[in-house]
Design a protein around this nucleic acid. Structure first.
Lengths: 245, 245
DNA sequence: CGGTCACTTGATCGTCTTCAATACCAGTGG
DNA sequence: CCACTGGTATTGAAGACGATCAAGTGACCG
């Protein structure tokens, strides 16, 4: 039952009608560069699908034929070394845009972590759309620049921070972007496994687990269940994350 | 005499005339998106300068007022932690474009490693130029995407590669992009110090030095002087860099 | 209940870091 | 020409942080 289907399910195969007009992720995404009046044009080239946990959306090295826009769920982007070592370069949630590539092949892979709903756009068709909506091109540049800044932060983390600082950074980022419980930013759900966190932070599962336990025993966080986190000392954690704790 | 001047020297303060038309870095840069016929418009907003080794071009956190285009020399981009730990996020050489930022402040610092010649553009003026040359906007998106791919590679390196693999990756990249001696890609100059290399690869100076020595003693490279490298076994090094050696 | 899977915890190991000394090179002045 | 100096690179010995190997726990599910 939980066996990941290898092919994503297409919900709106012809991109017909008002999928974009009623998209609750639109305001979070590049799509809002297209005005309401022309939203049908966007919908015409979009294919809405969803993917079960573990499904591969993008395979590194495959021809880069499509763009993706995540409307619900979480995706992990990663690169592999031949012997299986994995580096997760980022997690993409609601509104996130995927598939920017210079060459004609994808530079990374992307998999659904939980159940993911997303739109798929043919690159070629997007290109023609871009000519009519320079605002969208600007938004793409913004997206790329934002990613770039995040990537630089991650390089600092991977190259120079301790395990403790990495976990603190990760938790503070999650508490800003994450899925919240009980309406407070202090309590949220981690959609990804310990293995995903480890591969994102350049650590092992064991170190992630041990460091979580340590942070809890020191009173900085609480861990109601393996997938839930409560931030108890946000200021202290923020200091830790920026290398001052 | 070698004391770095804190303020860069302006060579062409009014951006007058044909600075861009005769720029030998133009074909390598985003500037070639502006057609020859309109090159004067580009030149009008450019300020050509040069900077001595150690000069700061961009300070993290400062208002992001300008873009930069490197026409000669090498720049290091980096981020610091409060206690002085440094992560170099990249080196920028001829034709490289600097200063993409989402927020209104720079997300990283940039310093000249050797003597650097560069053009400076006001962001505001570039923005107006972009409206007339959508091709330039596309080029910027290309630049950002390229950087992003490079950043993802670097995350893989920092998070998952061994010291040996990091050095091999670094050397192979340099042998593609670097300054060559004797007309062969196999022999090149490293403009940056061991400390820069260490902070780029997430290692210490000592580990970089030791690993260089080991690679030499094993016959993979030669080190005529501290700043020169000769690749003796490119295929083996490439394998090592990609995690297969 | 037995099985699986993810997570946690413990003990040992190894790579890279840290601390420290030495070598090297270019520039300067005796 | 050679000692002196400051900076950078190399080399050596000891230590630490995180990895690895291994066992144990708990949740979920058939």
């Amino acid at each position: 039952m939980l066996a990941p289907s290898t092919r994503p399910v297409v919900l709106d195969p012809h991109g017909a009608g008002n999928a974009c007009a009623h998209c609750d992720a639109r305001s979070h995404s590049v799509c809002n560069a297209v005005p309401d009046s022309d939203i049908a044009r966007l919908a015409a080239i979009a294919t809405v699908s969803h993917a079960q946990p573990g499904t591969t959306l993008i395979q590194e090295g495959d021809p880069a034929t499509h763009f993706f826009n995540i409307s619900a769920g979480t995706v992990r982007m990663y690169k592999l070394l031949p012997d299986g070592r994995r580096q997760i370069t980022g997690f993409a949630g609601m509104g996130h845009f995927l598939g920017l590539a210079v060459s004609d092949t994808y530079a990374f892979s992307a998999e659904a972590i939980d159940t993911v709903r997303y739109c798929r756009f043919s690159r070629a068709r997007v290109r023609t759309l871009l000519d009519d909506y320079p605002a969208m091109e600007k938004r793409l540049l913004e997206v790329a620049s934002t990613e770039l800044v995040a990537a630089q932060d991650q390089m600092l983390l991977l190259g120079r921070k301790t395990a403790r600082e990495r976990l603190a950074s990760f938790l503070m980022t999650q508490s800003r972007q994450g899925v919240f419980c009980h309406g407070t930013r202090a309590q949220f759900v981690l959609p990804m496994s310990r293995g995903d966190i480890a591969d994102y932070l350049g650590l092992t599962i064991e170190t992630v687990s041990r460091t979580f336990t340590k942070l809890r025993s020191e009173g900085f966080i609480d861990i109601p269940s393996a997938t839930e986190i409560t931030i108890r000392a946000p200021v202290a954690l923020e200091g830790m994350a920026t290398g001052m704790g």
